[in-house]
Amino acid sequence: MISAPLTVLICRSLVLRRVMIVLALVVGAVISVVGAVSAVTLTPLQVVERDLGRHDASVQLPVELQLGEEAPSTRGFEQGMGYFGASGFSYELTAIAVETAHDDRGSTLIQARWSGDEHHPRYVLRSGRWPERPGEAVLITPNRDAPMGGSLAIFGVSDALTVVGRADDKYAKQAQKILVAPGTWEMFGGDVRRRYPTSTAILIAYWVQQHQIPIQTAIDSWVGSHGGAPESAASTMALSFAIRESLLGVADPLQSRFPLTLILPSLLLPFVTGLLSAAITQRWLRGLVLTLHRQGALRQSVIRSAVLGTTVIFILAILIGAASGTLLVSLLRPVLEQFSGSSDLRV
């Protein structure tokens, strides 16, 4: 028979309270670390949304566009890829370190079609509208003093762009980006190109596919329609080729990024702490049982009360540690969000 007063007395003992504190701290620390790393690590689904959006695959085409230069025709590339089931092509022209009047670090300029379902879901429009005509722009910037409406000077040209909206990048909260409509890059030629001879842009193709298309097919489709050096095209395209199936098939981010430094310690630390706590508790319980038995308490009653009290303490320690760790991660979420640059954190 279990004695309730004896069980309460055992739970209130100094040894068990110390064991509970240590075990709760260890469990809370492990949950906090794992939760913090999980919060700043994207899931495969989030990586797909960030890199591909609604498309199934993408590749950087082997072209480098000078400032003001028009992109080469992609008609032959689309025909070659379409033969193997690709469709729904869209393109992004991207230039980095673009000089603007409101940003000393330089912004990333991205030219694409933003209307309808073509725009990338990683970008969320906060005010205004998406750019539709050459020279229109949407700003992504943490700088609250950036122009909202009116004009924006880039490449040393005053009133070069008309700001029609403001957006956020869900996966880069501190990013400085300028989203522009097709034809904007081509506006800056002549003297502007001569002043900025190192300003270049890359061209990324996105498409939808019913089945996986090998990278060699994309390379052959481009080289077959544009000529050039197959080796150079293959190198550029192979390094940038992204497929939805491959991104979704990656291992869990925690296991892939922190296999030994996080996963193994997070499993071993509570286990080892529990074993040590159990060993310390067992030694103490033996002495307690002998003492109480000498004072007239039934041996079996003392043992059952001691086992129950120890079990209750261990369960409370785990619950308190888990709750404390989860609460700590929730409180640190805003800081982690700023550190990681992502608003799609998971806890």
Rank of each mutant, 00 (worst) to 15 (best):
G190H: 11
L247Q: 01
R50Q: 11
H102P: 09
F188E: 04
S301F: 09
L109E: 00
G128K: 00
D252R: 12
L93V: 10
R244M: 00
L42A: 10
V8R: 15
H119A: 13
P131K: 03
A201M: 08
D159F: 07
G287S: 13
R244C: 06
T311R: 13
A112Q: 07
S90R: 11
P142K: 04
G53Y: 02
A322R: 10
I303P: 02
G128Y: 01
R17V: 05
E231C: 05
G76L: 05
V272Q: 07
A101T: 12
E49I: 04
F314R: 11
G85R: 00
A153G: 01
A29C: 05
N143C: 05
R50S: 08
D117W: 08
S199P: 04
Q255L: 14
H226A: 03
P270K: 04
S246K: 15
A229D: 15
V47D: 15
S340G: 12
Y123G: 06
F84I: 09
Y83G: 10
L336Q: 14
D104F: 14
L23G: 02
A86D: 11
V22M: 02
P197L: 13
T184L: 01
A218C: 05
P5Q: 15
A201S: 11
A181P: 00
L45K: 11
S13C: 10
E92N: 14
I219F: 13
G76T: 08
G224I: 12
I31C: 03
Q209P: 03
P214L: 08
F241W: 08
P62V: 03
L203N: 02
K173G: 11
